[in-house]
Design a protein around this nucleic acid. Sequence first.
DNA 1: ATGAAAGCGCTAACAA
DNA 2: TTGTTAGCGCTTTCAT
Lengths: 334, 334
Amino acid sequence: MATIDDVAKAAGVSASTVSYVLSGKRPISPRTRERVERTIRDLGYRPHAGARALASSRSNVIALMVPFRPGINVQIIMQFVAGVVSAARAHDHDVLLLTQDDSSGVDRVASSSMADAIIVMDIEAEDERLPALRSLKQPSVLIGVPSDPSGLSCVDLDFTAAGRLAVRTLTDAGHRRLALIGASQERFDRRANYAVRMRAGATEEAELRGADCAVLPCEPNFAGGTAALERVLDEMPGVTGLVVHNELALPGVMSALERRGVRVPEDISVVAIGAADTGTALARELTGIDVPGEDIGRVAVEMVMAQLDGEALSSTRLVSPDVTPRGSVAAPAV
Amino acid sequence: MATIDDVAKAAGVSASTVSYVLSGKRPISPRTRERVERTIRDLGYRPHAGARALASSRSNVIALMVPFRPGINVQIIMQFVAGVVSAARAHDHDVLLLTQDDSSGVDRVASSSMADAIIVMDIEAEDERLPALRSLKQPSVLIGVPSDPSGLSCVDLDFTAAGRLAVRTLTDAGHRRLALIGASQERFDRRANYAVRMRAGATEEAELRGADCAVLPCEPNFAGGTAALERVLDEMPGVTGLVVHNELALPGVMSALERRGVRVPEDISVVAIGAADTGTALARELTGIDVPGEDIGRVAVEMVMAQLDGEALSSTRLVSPDVTPRGSVAAPAV
DNA sequence: ATGAAAGCGCTAACAA
DNA sequence: TTGTTAGCGCTTTCAT
């Protein structure tokens, strides 16, 4: 591998000049720049990442901690990751993959200077990793909002607004008796922010609109979905609008609807909240609020970069939800 | 951050001794070792990754190139990744995430010495990345087998055997008229190894057992699945055994079966090939061949490590498939 | 069993 | 506008 000295020699300049051509941190005459750039290309020169990191104390790597626990929505995870990686590349950074269960990962990566910053996904209300993150010298960004986000930067979908929007979509169509099939009881028990805020937004908005919104926690799988739907049909006969905030249960819900002969949207209107392409496992697409995974990942990277550039205090950014009509909402039958 | 000199000073030894305590590359007296280790713990010392990489020309990082194109089975991707990451950690390595569309990723990572080796997923028959990989100084391992694997190391499920096994599972139960709902036409056209070999194994085994096996390419989505199943029912009335090798189409297939009133396994037996937890989007679990994503990822890392240790030539390792009975196969009706 | 010292390849003062 | 030089923190030979 060619080194910076090889390039310098071949181009007839000093090593620092090559370095400055690459970094743009000081003016270079057009002639020199041209010559150096040609040499770099000819030799196929690439700075040694380690040497650069050592000298500049910047690795140009950001670490990303991804959850791999079961019952998680892999679809959306991949979207986040894709967003993070592509945004990072756009800022000339690479991404180091950490997993949730690698408990010492944050410390290791931080204190060995492998990464300049850390993005952590799937944050719980009382996340165990928060203390470690707070005491880091590197900046970090959380995807998800803990109950105490002080001193930390967070991004997430605005789930309160999403709850409101989902309900409003139904009440605007004329529905007054709604049911929310939401996250699992376990998620609510652990006060998972997204589950709790979604529910809060939905119930508040329902109240505001003079509507009724029952909430059913639901296991994140097919059987959970069918079970929840059975309960709605059997115990809440007046319900004409359904909000489903549980991608893994959604196939179960839809299948049960069909089996019970309930038509969508003629008999029941459905609004889904989840990854954009959840519909692929379904017979039909649903009107819904697509969690913009890629966008959120992108924003996380922007926040990281801002912090690395010395701008930006810790703050929480909530991305506004949008509803995409796909024909599963209509006026209730009279 | 504490440096190796800080540790050396505090422990009253030289920096090289600290280094050797850490690497175990030369004998250290128990007393010294003890003292140094205590100091390391007290100071929370961690070697600077860049400095280490610079001095040793080893980054302890392996790069993993992950596909993000649509129509891919995210489930299985995540399993591979999980397997790779955990195996890498077991070998004291971290994982750098590269994406398919980052075309220069391989070169960048290799020639900047960011990674000691590269694992590439989702290999096509005539993969464009092969030349770059062949000319690398770092070792690489492909997940998937190209049409010409010479000079490269590959791991994959043995799809030929999987095809055979799926068919044999059905013929052993007494079925003689089978249909294989496989990958999309586009995959076959590009001669994707897994699709082609799976089909070959299935048809060979069918012939061997005196059975008949129709092959239907199928779009990787719900509609594709229903369409393929409709064709089976309408154009191949004698079929009693179904092999589905297309996870994204599987929900469509199962839903269409139910809608047409075809019972599983009473009327038709079904064998599925795919990610272990594909069943979560389905009403019922299916007898099937679970692609052992984590295992394959793990094997890829083992192969990488072997190459880094100077053992191991390039070779292809095919992991043997197993069938897991889940009650969707029975003897055909008489 | 341990230490001293020479790099590894780069960046960023400091000089000119 | 460019060059010289002193590290960055570690590994590893060479000495002892």
